[in-house]
Design a binder for these strands. Structure first.
Lengths: 154, 154
RNA sequence: UGACACCAAUUGUC
DNA sequence: GACAATTGGTGTCA
C-alpha cells in the first residue's frame, strides 16, 4: 500500500512543556519522549527565566536528545504553546528576512533560543503539533516542568 | 471627648453572604442588618446563577433596604467575599477606566450587578470590611443564604 | 485590538 | 481532592 504516513516504528513523539513562577523567576521544563512503546521522561530547572523561554527550552532539549539517538526518524513535537508552534513554523521565516525584527519593528525576544531550535528543526524531519491540554503525555510533561521548578541543580 | 468614631446609634451594620450549588445552579443570598440593637434578617433565592453573583446580590439587597430607611447613616458592610470587597473598593476604578476589561483583557463579568452596587455605594456613606468566617452575624447570613437556595419563590 | 501560555489569590459547592 | 466562579500579574506574538 502507498501511504503518506510513515511506519509507526519510525516515528518519535515528543511532548514538551514549560513552567515558570513570574515572581520568583524560577522556571522548569518537562518532556516525554515516546517511540514504539519505549518512553523517556526528563526535566530540568532554570533560574531567572520566563514561561516562554521554558517552553522553547523544553522543545530544544527534546530535539537534542532525539538527535543523538534517532536522527533518521520522523519526529512529532506536541506542545500547548502557540508561541512555540507559530514561531517555529511561521514567524521565524519573517524574522530571518527582517533582521529579527517583529511586526512592531522591535527586536524579536529570545533570539538565541529560536536559533538553537531552528537549527535542530532543520537538521531533522520535525513536525509541530499544537496539543490539547487533556492529552495524557502533555499533562505529564506539564507536571514534570512544574515539579522541576523547585529542583536544585547539582 | 473627641473621637473619629461616630455615635454608634448612627451606624448600620450589614452582614451579607451568598451561596450557590453549581450543579443545580440554585443560588441564595442572606443578610443580617443591625442598628442600635434592632436586627433585621432577610434572604432570597435565584435560579441559574453563580456564587459570585449571589455574593454581589446579597450586598445590593442590603444596601437597597438601608437606602429606603436610613440613608443618612454610616454603613458598614461585612462580607467574607474578597471578590466583593476588592471589586467595589479597588478594581471597579480600573474597570471604569478600561471599558470594563479586567487585567486579563477579558470583559468584566457581572457588570450589571457591579454597576448597581456601585451606584448604591456612591449614594451613601458605605464602608467595606472583609469579615472573619467565625463572626456570629456572618455565620447567620451564610446559613440564611444556604437555606434560601431551596426556597421556592412565590 | 486580538490570541496563546505561565503564575498567583479568594469564594462557593461536592 | 476536584470542579466552578472570578480576580490580579508577566511573557510573547500578529
Amino acid at each position: 500500500m502507498t501511504s503518506t504516513l510513515k511506519d509507526t516504528n519510525n516515528i518519535v513523539r515528543a511532548y514538551v512543556s514549560g513552567s515558570c513562577t513570574p515572581q520568583a523567576k524560577s522556571g522548569g521544563w518537562g518532556i516525554v519522549l515516546i517511540r514504539t512503546g519505549k518512553r523517556l521522561e526528563k526535566q530540568g530547572s532554570v533560574a531567572h527565566t520566563t514561561s516562554n523561554q521554558m517552553a522553547l527550552t523544553a522543545a530544544i532539549n527534546a530535539l537534542e536528545i532525539i538527535k543523538k539517538n534517532n536522527s533518521d526518524k520522523q519526529i512529532i513535537v506536541t506542545t500547548v504553546s502557540k508561541y512555540v508552534v507559530d514561531g517555529i513554523t511561521q514567524h521565524i521565516k519573517s524574522w530571518k528576512l527582517n533582521e529579527w525584527k517583529n511586526s512592531n519593528k522591535k527586536p524579536v525576544l529570545n533570539k538565541d533560543l529560536w536559533i538553537q531550535l531552528d537549527e535542530l528543526n532543520q537538521s531533522m524531519d520535525v513536525n509541530w503539533l499544537r496539543g490539547d491540554k487533556t492529552q495524557e503525555e502533555l499533562v505529564k510533561s506539564e507536571s514534570l516542568a512544574r515539579d522541576a521548578r523547585a529542583i536544585k541543580k547539582h
